[in-house]
Computed example of a mutant assay.
Amino acid sequence: MLREIIKHKDSLHHAYLIESDSLEIVAQIINLFEDVLKFSTKNNPDFWFGEFETFGIDDGRKINELQSKKSFNGGKQFFVIKMNFITREAQNSLLKMFEEPTPHTHFFIIMNSSEILLPTLKSRLMLVRPYSESDSEIEIEKFAKKFIKSSLAERLEMVKIYFGDSKKKEPADKSGAIRFLNELEKQLREDIDFKNVKEKDQIIFNEIMNCRSFLNDRSPSVKMLLEHISVIT
């Protein structure tokens, strides 16, 4: 389930959306903190866990206030939020928080399904599903690795071949493009020193986030958006 997060433990995303109905998922996340990240969750003011049947606007405001404070121990802060439903108002209250995340603060949001989330909020989260290394996932990983190593001309040609024909099977559609952007971000983060993030790297991550948001529009131009990523990466 959490193998991808473990793989990138030195460059954690600021917010993960874990799509799971497993009763054991919270325990798995706690084990991740304790055993892999060496972060104690017991009596630690930098760790917060909340479980909600319905996550409302007041809950969103409370989380926003808590995460805005500096870490008690001067290190990372972790928030684990398990919810069955979240109101539209609460989602809007979280948008700015995820647009401008507090440094060294990480969220693990657990839901049965991500379908109820607003596209603008969903685009700011890194989706994690039960791990299965299918052929399509392997293809996306290889595509992202090749994309990073290629020249601009080669990247544009790759986008044209894989995403320029709407009749092609995945990853030509927008869901495939989102999966590609997720994988691209993961791989780029592996080479980043997050204690000294360069302005160019921050711009790239912001543009990837923006493209994910645009891809959730009704009729996005997948090819045009990925051509933009080709230029700025």
Rank of each mutant, 00 (worst) to 15 (best):
S20E: 05
E185M: 11
E4Q: 10
S151Q: 07
S219W: 12
S40N: 15
E115H: 03
E4I: 11
L95T: 04
V197W: 08
F49C: 04
N210T: 02
R61W: 02
I18F: 04
R124S: 03
S213Q: 06
D58Y: 11
I63E: 02
L226E: 04
A27F: 13
K42I: 14
I109L: 15
I208R: 02
I138R: 11
K38T: 11
S150G: 05
E141A: 15
K70E: 10
L156G: 09
F39P: 11
K149T: 06
K168V: 01
L117E: 08
N73E: 11
K149H: 04
F205L: 04
L37N: 08
Q28V: 05
R3H: 14
M83K: 00
M83F: 10
E207L: 10
P130Y: 02
K38Y: 13
D165Q: 12
F79Q: 05
N92F: 00
R189L: 08
R61V: 13
S68I: 04
K146S: 12
F55S: 04
L125S: 08
V128H: 05
I138M: 12
S40T: 10
L188I: 03
E100S: 07
I203K: 15
A144F: 02
Y131D: 02
S11K: 00
E199S: 14
K145F: 12
R88N: 11
Y162M: 15
R189S: 03
K145W: 03
L127H: 02
K142Y: 10
I161E: 13
N31L: 12
L118F: 04
S113R: 09
E183M: 10
F147I: 06
I178W: 04
S134I: 00
P171S: 03
S11L: 08
N196I: 01
D135H: 11
W48T: 07
R3D: 14
T41R: 03
K122V: 01
D58C: 09
R124D: 07
D191Y: 12
L121D: 04
N43R: 14
V231N: 08
P103S: 11
R189F: 05
L225C: 11
D217I: 04
L188P: 11
T233E: 07
H104W: 14
